[in-house]
Each structure stands twice: as C-alpha cells, then as structure tokens.
C-alpha cells in the first residue's frame, strides 16, 4: 500500500516513547525549535509520531496528529499520542478556524492532491503553519534531469516515477509564488542543504532555489495579527 503521507518519515526508526533532540531528524529538530512550549500543535502527516512525542514530552505542547498510514496511527496511539487516521486533503475542513497555535506539515505537501487548498486550510486552522518540502529546483535534481534525462531520485525523493506518492512537486520559487497568490504571509523561511543544515537565503532569490534541497516555511493567514517572529 503506498504511503502518501510522511514521505521521509515512514523510513524513520520505530517509535520511541522518549525522544531526545539528538534522535530527531534534522528538519524536524528545526521545526521543533520554532514551536513555543505549551502550544496547541497539529502535526499533519505525523508518521511514527517522532516530532509529536518530542514536543509533548520536552515542550509540554498539547499535540495532535493526523496520519494516513494506519500502522503509523496505531503505533502513535499505542505510545499515548493523540493521533487520528486521516489525510490532509480530506480531513482539514472539519477543524474550526484558529483551533491550533501551530499546524505542521512536514514533507507532506507534495503528496497531497490539492496543495493549494491544503495551504489555505493550514493558515485557517492554525495561527501559524510550518511547512517543509523538498525543493525540485535543487541543482542536483536539475542536473540529474539534464544529464540523464530520467526522473530524479534522491534521498528526499526516493521513489521511481511510477510509484511515487509525490504527485505535486514544486520548487521553492513555485511555493513562494503560490503563497503570494493566496495572500499567505511568509513569516520566516529556512533553506536546508543536503545535510539538513539551515541557510537563511532569501527564498525569492535564485540562489536559494538552486542550493536548497528542502525549504522550511513559517506561514500565517492574511488576516492574522502580525507575528513577533
């Protein structure tokens, strides 16, 4: 069964009830650092619950998760996390506006059927949304396509074209353009190189789009009160 959510996280190690920062995947660690203690957090595509478990135990957040794969959900709940089986395309409409302080969508946007609607839902139900996704404009992907003429396969995009769950890939520039179109505020952005090291490059610039393997964006809705970040 293809697991459309939690692209990279489905390969993460089995869930552990106590997670230290060291064990947390690098991009998740960055996301965790952006979240205030005690916040109400919804992690969409929470995989095995590594981020949720970390946030709940280390930061005392009121955390919930949505995960597509039933095995992921069951593992999360069996570890005391509040997680439901569901998907980002179908199940976000049910939530009321501003139900959460932070909504996290990590490495999942590209696997949704309607990313545009999903982004709108994120900034509706969360005061802030943190979105991370693989950058299809990354130089290795461009070069690979140019030289081999085959669909790119990388650590972040490990599936061959015929069985990939990643049906809506985009570049960092594409993403920023969509945010502009939706009048979604980009409060903060980080670009990560292939080792997961963050660089504060201007996401609208060509360099970020070329050098970043993935992007992490903090978004807020157009009606949102200006954030302190």
């Amino acid at each position: 069964m293809p697991q459309a959510l939690g692209l990279a996280r489905v390969e993460a190690p089995s869930p552990t009830p106590t997670v230290s920062t060291d064990e947390l995947r690098r991009d998740l660690r960055l996301i965790a650092e952006m979240i205030d203690p005690g916040a109400r957090v919804l992690d969409i595509g929470c995989g095995d619950g590594a981020l949720l478990a970390y946030l709940t135990r280390q930061k005392g957040v009121d955390g919930r998760g949505i995960e597509l794969s039933q095995s992921g959900v069951n593992a999360c709940v069996a570890h005391g996390l509040s997680v439901i089986q569901g998907d980002a395309d179908r199940d976000l409409d049910a939530y009321p506006a501003r139900a959460f302080d932070v909504v996290v969508l990590s490495q999942t946007l590209q696997a949704t059927r309607a990313p545009r609607r999903v982004i709108e839902a994120l900034v509706r139900i969360g005061r802030r949304a943190i979105v991370s996704f693989p950058n299809f404009g990354f130089w290795k992907i461009r070069l690979g396509l140019l030289l081999s003429g085959r669909m790119p396969i990388s650590d972040l995009l490990p599936h061959p074209w015929y069985e990939t769950p990643n049906i809506h890939l985009c570049t960092i520039r594409d993403f920023v353009a969509l945010c502009d179109e939706l009048e979604v505020r980009v409060e903060r952005s980080l670009t990560l190189d292939r080792h997961g090291r963050p660089y504060a490059l201007d996401p609208r610039g060509g360099l970020a789009n070329l050098l970043a393997e993935q992007g992490v964006f903090v978004l807020s809705g157009r009606t949102s009160i200006r954030s302190e970040t």
């Binding site: 109400r40 009121d62 919930r64 039933q70 959900v73 069951n74 999360c76 709940v77 996390l81 509040s82 997680v83 439901i84 089986q85 569901g86 199940d91 049910a94 939530y95 009321p96 139900a99 959460f100």
Partner: peptide, 18 residues
C-alpha cells in the same frame, strides 16, 4: 464521530484495526 470531535478541536485519537 471523529469529524464532529475535530470540529470542536477535541483531543481525539482514532484507530481502525484490521
């Protein structure tokens, strides 16, 4: 039921067992 609970942002887990 879960959707109704989500609509009030309740703390809910939902597991379907095969």
């Amino acid at each position: 039921l879960v959707q109704a609970l989500n609509a009030v942002a309740a703390n809910v887990s939902f597991v379907e067992i095969a």
